[in-house]
Design a protein around this nucleic acid. Structure first.
Lengths: 248, 248
DNA sequence: CGGTTGCTTTGATCCGGATCAAATTGGAAG
DNA sequence: CTTCCAATTTGATCCGGATCAAAGCAACCG
């Protein structure tokens, strides 16, 4: 269920509602219009729980603005974030009841929402919508699996470096950047939220951030604002294959 | 990409090729027939790599028999299994190139395969196929997220107990069973493969299995055959919410 | 049969990250 | 500009699981 099918922005700009350049051409005008009629917007305050685990969900939709968190909690309180919901990410499970995860606003969040039943109906009749959703889910799944590698095998330092890199890559306000550029932005998550995402404690998160700072990979001004003097150099700390090469 | 969309059994029995009872009725006869024409079978030996990370993939399909493993490896050799492929699980990524995961046969594996391009074409024209696939992907994603909780927050003992419970639940040869039944079956994975799945070392896996045996949660005859005297009691060791309750 | 080979178990030690406990800081409210 | 407080950093210690090292053990083979 949940998170990040992505890009259900619903056309303030005439884009394909189930967006993404590649498929826009597949959207029939009447499908686009159908989505258009169904959408509503709603804003949630930071800290507010948008969806409770086990809820009977009445809507699906996507994040327009802000950051939310998709997480699961054990009885004894141990918590694991299983998804980070940034603008353009899809929220809600079409078909059947949603799985037991909470969605919590990390900052003020605006959702673009569709009535669930209507949306499900649309999936069943529109190939374009269904296959676009499928594609988005496949991306989601790939991301989830990469996260599994991080959780199962990376060290604390690699986890922190990976998270910072991922947040930077997804921050559209930075525009496209490359290689060794210097970039800066605000971390949308508290140390505790990062810990829940990375399977660490908040103390370890803090220590590793300090350590990356000491080693010159990042600079901090205030608690949330971060600067990365050399993006590629930080990427080397993630433990990931960075060359992206594919010889022979 | 990959793994477990599930149930592309392709009708030796007249079932919906994109199976699952709930949707069978949605399959049009001609769609069923289209899938029928496209399928081929192939068997792989235990230990064989079925798909290499980065491959240009020519087919998609599903596991008919045997067990395969979906895994990712870091340059320095650290490995994390990100999916367990059991009979009925889907393999391959329709649309775009598959992500960098290996698929390796853990036992002898038989796949039912479709030519990729044909299958993708089918998705684009058949709502039934696309929406069934979507549903399966959503289940996959839920499972992946539960695994994230396991990797990030569970103790070694809880991880082992969880894995045994999950394998037992998915073993169809056991038939449906409930609560405190006694059940027994063969573990389809080596200690090392379990370790790769759980984000542990093989020594820790072995120790925890021994510990569960000492405490009477499981019995072992030979290295692979396992008996669970009281399934519900083992479930209590997983750390999961077991009551499944949903009061008020 | 005895020997090789590949799992698996068990043992001893080490270390990364958790836990418990203060101290510090930055930002919001007055 | 101060005050206050939650978020963060830093410190000291502990422990679960990793690592290094040696046996068991069952299947296979000559």
């Amino acid at each position: 269920m949940f998170k990040s099918v992505t890009n259900l922005k619903t056309s303030d700009c005439g884009d394909c509602p189930i967006q993404a350049s590649a498929v826009c051409s597949r959207c029939e005008p009447d499908e686009l219009e159908a989505l258009e009629r169904l959408k509503t917007y709603k804003t949630y305050a930071a800290g507010q729980t948008i969806i409770w685990a086990g809820d009977e969900l009445q809507f699906v939709g996507s994040v327009v603005k802000g950051v939310a968190t998709l997480s699961q909690t054990m009885e004894d309180g141990r918590r694991q974030m299983v998804g980070l919901l940034l603008p353009s990410d899809f929220v809600g499970r079409p078909g059947r009841q949603h799985a037991p995860f909470d969605v919590i606003a990390a900052t003020e969040v605006t959702l673009c929402r569709f009535h669930k039943a209507d949306f499900e109906n649309l999936i069943k009749t529109s190939t374009a919508v269904a296959s676009r959703l499928l594609e988005m889910m496949l991306d989601e799944l790939d991301a989830a699996r990469e996260w599994m590698l991080l959780l199962g095998r990376k060290t604390a330092r690699e986890k922190i470096a990976s998270l910072i890199v991922i947040i930077a890559r997804r921050d559209k306000s930075l525009g496209p950047f490359e290689g060794n550029s210097r970039i800066q932005f605000d971390l949308p998550l508290s140390r505790e939220a990062m810990a829940d995402y990375l399977g660490l404690t908040l103390e370890t998160v803090s220590r590793q951030i300090s350590s990356l700072k000491r080693d010159g990979f990042i600079e901090l001004t205030g608690k949330r604002h971060i600067a990365i003097p050399d993006f590629a150099r930080l990427e080397n700390e993630t433990g990931d294959d960075t060359d992206g090469g594919m010889l022979a």
